[in-house]
């Protein structure tokens, strides 16, 4: 990136922060409950990710717009009500689009309310920034979350059912790893992704020329 790093972060920088550097799933490990519960298949994971992104962006916009009006004492309560409103909207929206998906995601759509990621972003970012950066940042975070969920969901679907988006990948002889679709699989796959990331990061650290001697 040719961006001047420090100073006030540019719009692109705000966007990329959530998408990669501070990825909510792999780096910050926030919002784990829906991340593990619904990522049995790639479609579910993607739907959940997009629903969360929608709530994240719209609540960031609203929180940022009213940030000067809300007294400090009741801000958390206000944020929660705003988030709950948008979650209700998403809940009815998904039920209207696809009843099948609605049944598959179940109570976890409503549980988006208590996703620590959304409240955390509202409190830490949107309440302190004007609408444009707030929304950009939320969009990056939301997409980062969706990508994270998709990464989990696709791995679990490929190994657990031998399919991706319902299309068979390995032919009829494939013996599905049932454990991948069951709860333990969720923990294992996320653990493995985190392992991969921390391995990659430690490799980068040892490779880059160090300005000062190692400890």
């Amino acid at each position: 990136m040719a961006l001047p790093g420090k100073a006030p972060p540019s719009t692109l920088d705000e966007f990329l922060e959530g998408l990669w550097r501070q990825n909510p799933v792999f780096v910050m490990v926030l919002g784990m409950c829906p991340a593990l519960a619904v990522t049995v298949s790639a479609v579910n994971a993607l739907a959940m990710g997009l629903a969360t992104a929608f709530v994240l962006v719209s609540s960031a916009l609203l929180v940022s717009l009213i940030r000067k009006m809300v007294p400090k004492e009741v801000r958390i309560a206000t944020y929660i009500v705003i988030i709950a409103t948008f979650v209700t909207v998403v809940d009815y929206l998904i039920a209207a689009i696809s009843l099948e998906l609605y049944e598959a995601l179940g109570a976890f759509i409503q549980l988006i309310v208590v996703n620590c990621l959304i409240l955390g972003r509202a409190e830490a970012h949107a309440s302190k920034h004007p609408p444009l950066p707030a929304v950009t940042n939320a969009l990056g975070m939301g997409l980062g979350f969706a990508i994270g969920l998709f990464a989990l969901g696709s791995v679990r679907e490929i190994f657990g059912a031998g399919k991706l988006f319902g299309v068979s990948l390995f032919g009829p002889d494939f013996q599905p790893w049932v454990v991948m679709v069951l709860p333990p699989g969720g923990f294992f796959v996320l653990g493995a992704w985190l392992l991969l990331f921390s391995w990659w990061r430690s490799r980068k650290v040892t490779r880059s020329p160090l300005p000062v001697g190692e400890g």
Binding site: V29, L182, P183, P184, G185, G191, L194, S198, W199
Partner: peptide
Amino acid sequence: PGVVQGTALSLMLAGLLSLAFM
């Protein structure tokens, strides 16, 4: 080992516990 420490290790443990609870 250093790479495994932290959240990754906790998640693996949770996976094993969850397997046991199955």
